[in-house]
């Protein structure tokens, strides 16, 4: 093909790679900057010396962060909430998705409508809050696990997957051999749906890990607070400060610099674990979007 080597085609290719490199840097640099800033001396940072590499490695920020109890309480809580929440969510979502994937179930359409309405219409913040209060879920860690354990969106993704991956003939054959629904679900469907378990589990886990609104509304006790609430105190409410020097006296400017340093460190400590694991799981996340995009 001669046209592909024409000048305009070459220019287009150059522009393509140029623009994509700009996008790459634009997407990565803010994250990269947080990491290098967290290792740099706050004065070097404030004087505009930190651009591409950490300057004058300074680890006091991390030292302080590791001693800061609320962050680690939050970390522990979030790990617990994430593990339990994800398991509960899978136990509720996957069986429902399987039932909904069966076309021979008579009430399927009715139940679909039942599940779909809340996607577009809801009671709102206040009635939900009153409900939680009446159910004694205020300041109860269960409030972060139970109400959000079923997402219709995730159920639809799982249902679409099961519909295309568990052939109806398989069920027919099993039924003729005398297999019931429950046994079929546990011995045939579950082993065949490991991929979708991973996808939904990851979605739910990231959702719980990052969620902060429910805890803001419903959790008051310090010992139940998840990571994101502790982070909010550090990052937004400026609740944490740090003194350096033997005299313990620091100027306002220095205070601000150290506070910024602590912010960088806490972002790294809380976010980098996910960032590191994520590239290995990326194909599962992307798979979820692909499955979800097929209209079920």
């Amino acid at each position: 093909m001669k046209q592909t080597h024409s000048l305009s085609e070459k220019l287009g290719l150059f522009a393509l790679y140029f623009v994509s490199v700009v996008i790459l840097i634009g997407a990565a640099y803010p994250i990269y900057f947080v990491v290098i800033a967290s290792f740099s001396d706050p004065n070097a940072l404030a004087n505009g010396k930190v651009w591409f590499f950490p300057q004058e490695i300074f680890l006091d920020g991390y030292k302080k962060i590791f001693e800061y109890e609320p962050l680690w309480t939050g970390y522990r809580n979030t790990i617990i909430y994430t593990i339990i929440g994800t398991l509960v969510s899978l136990c509720v979502t996957i069986p429902a998705a399987y039932a909904m994937s069966r076309r021979d179930m008579m009430l399927r359409n009715g139940i679909t409508i039942f599940f779909t309405i809340p996607m577009f219409f809801g009671g709102g913040m206040i009635p939900t809050y009153i409900l939680m209060k009446n159910l004694n879920l205020i300041d109860n860690p269960l409030v972060l696990i139970i109400p959000g354990c079923f997402s219709v969106y995730n159920m639809i993704i799982a249902r679409t997957f099961l519909q295309s991956n568990i052939p109806e003939a398989l069920w027919d054959a099993a039924r003729i051999d005398g297999c019931g629904n429950i046994r079929f679900f546990f011995t045939m469907v579950l082993p065949l749906s490991k991929a979708i378990l991973a996808v939904i589990g990851l979605y739910v886990a990231v959702g719980i890990w990052n969620s902060y609104f429910d805890a803001l509304l419903y959790i008051q006790s310090k010992e139940y607070r998840p990571l994101q609430i502790a982070l909010r105190d550090i990052l937004i409410a400026n609740s944490m400060s740090m003194r350096t020097g033997a005299s313990g006296q620091t100027t306002g400017m220095m205070q601000q610099r150290l506070r910024d340093l602590l912010k960088y460190c806490s972002i790294v400590v809380s976010t980098i674990p996910i960032m590191c694991v994520y590239p290995f799981l990326q194909k599962y996340f992307a798979k979820g979007v692909m499955i979800g995009s097929i209209k079920g």
């Binding site: 429902a96 399987y98 809801g122 079923f150």
Partner: peptide
Amino acid sequence: LLIPAVLVVAIFSYVPMYGI
């Protein structure tokens, strides 16, 4: 298999609608 999901939606999505 559907009962847990239906219960969760009924309690946490439909009951608040009544609160409207």
